[in-house]
Deep mutational scan, measured.
Amino acid sequence: KLETFPLDVLVNTAAEDLPRGVDPSRKENHLSDEDFKAVFGMTRSAFANLPLWKQQNLKKEKGLF
């Protein structure tokens, strides 16, 4: 399991300012399950079932792209 970080560490943070080991294209993977659901309004599995373009739009909207 990946290390999780608080939302404010990941949202609207440039790649070079992210904690070590965080993939800038997969910031959402480093949210706790609770934060993930609070941000996206759905579970990880529901998010994973969305088309890629919709996932990317949601990530942009939430500052996690």
Rank of each mutant, 00 (worst) to 15 (best):
L31H: 02
A15G: 08
L10N: 03
F47D: 03
Q55K: 05
N49E: 15
D35H: 05
K1S: 06
K62N: 09
K59H: 03
N49T: 13
Q56K: 10
K1P: 05
T13I: 05
L52T: 12
P19H: 06
R26V: 10
K27Y: 07
N29Q: 15
P24G: 08
Q55S: 01
T4C: 02
D33Q: 04
D23K: 02
L2E: 14
F40G: 00
L18E: 06
L10I: 07
F65Y: 09
F65K: 09
R44A: 04
K27G: 06
F47T: 00
L10T: 06
V9R: 11
K62L: 07
S32W: 00
G63A: 05
H30A: 07
L64I: 10
V11T: 07
E28R: 02
P19F: 00
L50K: 03
K1N: 10
R26Y: 13
V9C: 10
S45M: 13
E16W: 03
G63S: 06
K59W: 03
V22I: 12
A38R: 12
K27I: 15
F5W: 14
T4L: 08
V39K: 07
T4V: 11
P24D: 10
N57T: 10
D8I: 02
V39L: 14
D17G: 09
F40V: 02
K1H: 01
M42E: 00
F36P: 00
D8F: 00
E61S: 11
T43R: 07
G63P: 01
F47K: 02
L10Y: 03
A38L: 13
P24C: 07
D33H: 05
L52H: 12
L18H: 03
D23E: 03
N49L: 12
L31A: 02
S25G: 13
A14E: 13
D33M: 00
A48F: 11
Q56I: 13
E61G: 05
N49Y: 06
F65R: 07
M42S: 02
R20D: 13
L2W: 06
G41P: 00
Q55E: 00
W53Y: 11
F5L: 13
H30G: 06
S25T: 13
L7M: 11
K37R: 10
L7T: 09
A15Q: 07
Q56G: 05
